[in-house]
Design a protein around this nucleic acid. Structure first.
Length: 237
DNA sequence: CGCCAGGTTGTTG
DNA sequence: CAACAACATGGC
């Protein structure tokens, strides 16, 4: 019997507990505070999430953390401050996050956009309809669907579901054919089956990441709460 | 040492 | 549209 998406959420939540995404870096460590799933983010927090979403593209969070620490000890995290740095200076600070020249360019593009169109305040995007805010994000060089949706959900508080490689991996193993389809197609599955609640969407996506890590390079099936529904369980040679 | 991590873009068939 | 290369550091 295949797991429904709400049953899956319950299992993951009971096993991994609240994830309290998205973290803010303070005193050199990432903080995951209980209020974060519901909280309306301040412009400062929203900007850090925005930049973090770019930095974490195909990159371990530990490396992003180092980059954010470097940035925050060098200057206040504001578009106008970041833009006083050249792309080369910026790339030097974010080096630990990898792809540092690409990401410096991406951050510059986003900061110019925010400063020119929204007075440097990312939260102003919240005034737009969701589809238009998403369209604007996707029009920026360096922001694809996952980064856009992470910003919309975690920084701006729009009810949109984030799809990442972990989501696909888990759903494939659970036998969901939609997992091999396009980003928007898979996203629709969540929008149609899970009530659009920001706190719920934030927690659910973070739980996929937690589960995906258990199922990474060295799968720890003995400790996976999904073992009995997993393809590996049934199709082992 | 090799593999991969909270992707996106550009190129090519 | 799908497949593939390029982008790059650091942890396990």
């Amino acid at each position: 019997m295949r797991l429904s998406l709400s049953e899956l959420y319950d299992i993951l939540f009971r096993f991994y507990g609240p994830q309290n995404w998205w973290p803010i870096v303070e005193n050199g460590v990432s903080l995951y505070l209980p209020g974060y799933t519901q909280k309306q983010r301040t412009p400062e927090e929203a900007l850090e999430i925005w930049i973090g979403a770019i930095l974490t593209q195909n990159t371990a969070w530990k490396n992003v953390e180092k980059a954010l620490v470097n940035l925050k000890e060098r200057l206040p995290l504001l578009p106008e401050s970041l833009l006083t740095l050249s792309e080369e200076e910026l790339s030097d600070l974010i080096r630990p996050a990898g792809y540092y020249r690409q990401k410096a360019k991406k951050i510059h593009v986003s900061m110019r956009f925010l400063l020119q169109d929204y007075g440097g305040n990312p939260c102003e995007l919240r005034r737009l309809p969701l589809s238009e805010a998403r369209h604007q994000l996707l029009s920026l060089w360096g922001i694809g669907p996952e980064t856009a949706d992470s910003i919309l959900l975690y920084a701006l508080g729009f009810p949109i579901f984030v799809i990442d490689t972990y989501t696909r991996r888990i759903l494939k193993l659970l036998g969901y054919p939609e997992a091999t389809q396009s980003y928007e197609r898979l996203q629709d599955l969540f929008h149609k089956n899970i009530t659009p609640d920001v706190g719920l969407y934030r927690e659910y996506h973070a739980l996929f990441v937690a589960a995906g890590k258990t199922c990474g390079r060295k799968p720890d099936c003995g400790r996976c709460p999904l073992f009995s529904w997993c393809e590996r369980h049934h199709t082992r040679a």
